[in-house]
């Protein structure tokens, strides 16, 4: 009865605003939902590909594939890292830069992710935290956070030392949800310890 009454109350203008509000919510929630859903598929494909030599795509038309798993024990956090840092890939999970996506003792490993989805936990990362990376072959390397800085991407580019086997994590800054699209980047450097 009350519902019927409410329905009768609805006039065009208020319902317009309600629709607008719902639309705004749906639109903005699409990307994080996609991010969450894809991470489920990705972690499934990761577990599959661990047991096979072939690359298993998270979904048949995917243009990327998992390259490593990142684990931060203190935060009880696990994340599958994809290949590539193009916007499409980053929408699905954090991605490793092509030329720095091999787990070796001689080259850096560079990962970028969205500050408001997969990499939001970077704000909780502390100095001396241990980050573990495991690749598909099961090779594991441990890194310790040594350096955190905020860089203005308008003023400088990312300097990567070619033969420094560090792990570099990049995300946007500040983590404040109301600011986005700015030029600041949060860059964490972790040194190889094993």
């Amino acid at each position: 009865m009350l519902a019927l009454k409410l329905l009768r109350m609805l006039d065009v203008k208020t319902s317009l605003i309600t629709t607008l509000a719902l639309g705004l919510i749906a639109h903005s929630a699409w990307l994080p939902t996609k991010a969450w859903l894809s991470s489920q598929l990705i972690s499934y494909s990761w577990h599959q590909s661990k047991h096979s030599t072939q690359q298993i795509m998270p979904w048949p038309w995917a243009d990327t594939h998992p390259v490593a798993k990142m684990t931060i024990a203190r935060l009880n956090k696990q994340l599958i890292i994809l290949q590539g840092v193009d916007p499409t890939t980053l929408a699905f999970s954090a991605g490793a830069m092509h030329q720095y996506s091999h787990l070796t003792h001689s080259k850096p490993f560079v990962i970028a992710g969205h500050k408001d989805s997969h990499f939001s936990f970077l704000q909780e990362l502390h100095m001396k935290d241990i980050i573990s990376l495991t690749n598909k072959e099961g090779k594991n390397q441990l890194y310790q956070v040594e350096h955190m800085e905020i860089i203005d991407s308008e003023e400088q580019t990312l300097q990567i030392i070619e033969q420094d086997p560090s792990l570099i994590l990049i995300t946007c800054y500040p983590f404040n949800p109301l600011v986005s699209g700015g030029s600041l980047r949060y860059v964490i450097t972790a040194k190889l310890i094993s």
Binding site: S28, A29, L31, P32, A35, V85, D86, P87, L90, A91, G95, M97, A112, G113, H114, K115, D116, S117, F119, I151, S153, T157, L158, I170, T171, C172, P177, L178, S180, G181, G182, R185
Partner: peptide, 9 residues
């Protein structure tokens, strides 16, 4: 730098 924010919140 790559783009690292969705700006959904």
């Amino acid at each position: 730098f790559p783009k690292t924010a969705i700006g959904w919140q």
